[in-house]
């Protein structure tokens, strides 16, 4: 596991600056994207000249790209599943938080606060050990793979955050909406599902998308509990190549993938926030 860390070489400014200068003209993308790309290119350029018999860094990265992407796909799968499960459960938990029944409201509040204030990694470990590796349903064994357990592990904090997002959005709906619904004889659950929640969706979406980006980035934590994903793939690649000069480019490359995936989500969130800011 700790193999590559012992031999980190110092950064060589001469090569690095030349690399940056050489590619500056081509930079068109957003500043962050350029930075990530730059990191890779610096090293690619630096080592392309000196590599000798070994293939160039860029070439190596390119060759390993399908493998790295194969790992990265698991980050998306795990985070998407965590969001789906966490959102569904969090929705119910959030609505339970505004229940008129204290016996429903109090435990929902407690569960929300507990999960929201727990380190994600601890929740992840908890789920890995809590969930069995297989289930017996009517005599059939259904295996629960580790990535699925990890997804549930991430679903717990997601559930708590969604619960708070839902509760906050519901509370932001003016009291007059509840009053007029009540005056028209809507039941409380009709009022919630037909009148309040539809108005909440717009208010919740930016926060929800933000959460999604955060969960995607956090999904590399699954690596710590032994689930294969993007970071695992990167480490496996480094272990196979045994080349110190690949260390930074490979991690930068993985970073770039996350950036390319999460940045558009962040942009879309800002766009939606701005667009819907004034609408009621």
């Amino acid at each position: 596991m700790s193999r590559p860390f012992a031999v980190l070489l110092p950064f060589r400014p001469g090569d690095g600056l030349a690399g940056i200068a050489g590619h500056r003209a081509d930079r068109r993308a957003a500043a962050g994207l350029a930075l990530a790309a730059g990191l890779i290119l610096v090293h690619a350029a630096a080592h392309a000249a000196t590599a000798g018999a070994k293939p160039a860094v860029l070439e190596t990265l390119w060759r390993w790209t399908p493998f790295l992407l194969g790992g990265f796909v698991w980050n998306i799968v795990i985070s998407a599943l965590a969001m789906a499960v966490g959102t569904a459960l969090g929705f119910l938990l959030g609505i339970a938080q505004i229940s008129q029944v204290r016996a429903v409201r109090a435990p929902s509040w407690f569960a929300t606060q507990l999960l929201r204030n727990a380190p994600w990694l601890v929740l992840l470990f908890y789920c890995m050990y809590l969930l069995p590796f297989q289930l017996h349903v009517f005599g059939t064994r259904i295996g629960i793979p580790d990535w699925l357990k990890a997804a549930f592990g991430f679903a717990l904090p997601v559930m708590a955050y969604v619960s708070e997002i839902v509760r906050g959005a519901i509370r932001s709906i003016p009291a007059g909406q509840w009053e007029s619904a009540e005056a028209l004889s809507f039941t409380r659950s009709q009022t919630i599902w037909m009148i309040v929640i539809p108005q909440c969706l717009k208010r919740m979406l930016p926060a929800w998308m933000n959460l999604y980006a955060i969960v995607t980035m956090a999904s590399v934590l699954a690596n710590v509990v032994g689930v294969s994903e993007g970071l695992t793939a990167a480490r496996e690649m480094l272990a196979a190549e045994q080349r110190v000069e690949l260390l930074l480019p490979v991690y930068a490359y993985v970073l770039l993938w996350f950036f390319a995936y999460c940045y558009p989500i962040a942009r879309a969130t800002v766009f939606l926030e701005r667009r819907w800011a004034v609408a009621h």
């Binding site: 003016p174 007059g176 909406q177 007029s180 009148i195 539809p198 108005q199």
Partner: peptide, 20 residues
């Protein structure tokens, strides 16, 4: 209450229409 509110309509100062 449901039967009562069917017989009595109320209109509020702030209209309170459902915006969606």
């Amino acid at each position: 209450k449901l039967a009562l509110r069917r017989k009595v309509g109320i209109v509020f100062q702030q209209y309170n229409l459902f915006p969606h």
